[in-house]
Amino acid sequence: MMMKIRTPSKGRIRRELEKRAPKLVETGKKTLILHGTKTSNVLNAILSQIHHLKRNDSVRFTRKNDIKPFESSGETSLEFFSVKTDCSIFVLGSHSKKRPNNLVFGRTYDHHIYDLVEVGVENFKSTESFSYDKKLTPHVASKPFFAFIGEGFESVEELKHLKEVLLDLFRGEVVTNMNLAGLDRVYVCTAVSSNRVFFTHCAMRLKKSGTIVPRMELVEVGPSMDLVIRRHRLPDDSLKKEAMKQAPESTKKKVKNVTKDAIEGKIGKIYIPNQMVGSVPLPNKAKGLKRERREAKMKGEGSKPAEKKQKQDSD
């Protein structure tokens, strides 16, 4: 078959494609926020606030979409959106008589649906309804703490699943180095009963405690809501196994001539090649050389051309 190599003609597009290519170490997932065919005011507020909380890495669609992820062939458009926007988590809000204030959290692997959790929202309180010192408002895209409270998160399968999804949704960028001064937010989740989770977002105040570790104080800044588990779909075992694969850790090259000692720390051996001191040209006319000339004069026979030759040599 005849083939042709096609490469983007613009560097910007090439860079964008490279960003989307699979990576050995992933640093975070983008979130897609979607509205179903019908949404309530509560849902609109929730979706916009989730978008706000994840402002750096979320894409929000404000048009209505007829998507029913739990039904057969309901994933196609989701998968399409996932490819288009390069998002691997989605949040879909929909409102119906049967399932009022419905939120579906889902994740994709390789742009195919991986798992789904459906929750109903109750007792929603928006950020605006909380009164607190505005200085405490968390910064955009700061790394959050998580606190999960309750036995349910381990014993009940749905809650265990929800915990995982919530953690993945809100954890933000995966980092290795972190600034301790930038810690300012916590997501607290409590399993109230076997199908109900109380979720709230708090700001954190670091207070002096006399030790290195500051004393933490939580101030509720919202949004806060109750999540009532409805339907959920776990990933296939085979898919899960594949998705959990981690990049093999890069085998470190053995560093030559460096040893580590418990007492002395890092020790290095240095080999210096022959310096060839005799043949190295001198940077400036050293006084020592002049003395040599003087000595030659002292001897008396110092004829001038010979002297010059010597000078040239020394240069």
């Binding site: 409270i149 301790l180 954190m204 004393r215």
Partner: peptide
């Protein structure tokens, strides 16, 4: 509800403190 929120925040603070202890 107030009781729930209060209990949650109280316990949450403990948990966060535990993370902070390990982190610092």
């Amino acid at each position: 509800r107030e009781e729930l929120v209060k209990a949650t925040l109280e316990h949450g603070t403990k948990l966060v403190q535990a993370v902070a202890d390990a982190l610092f």
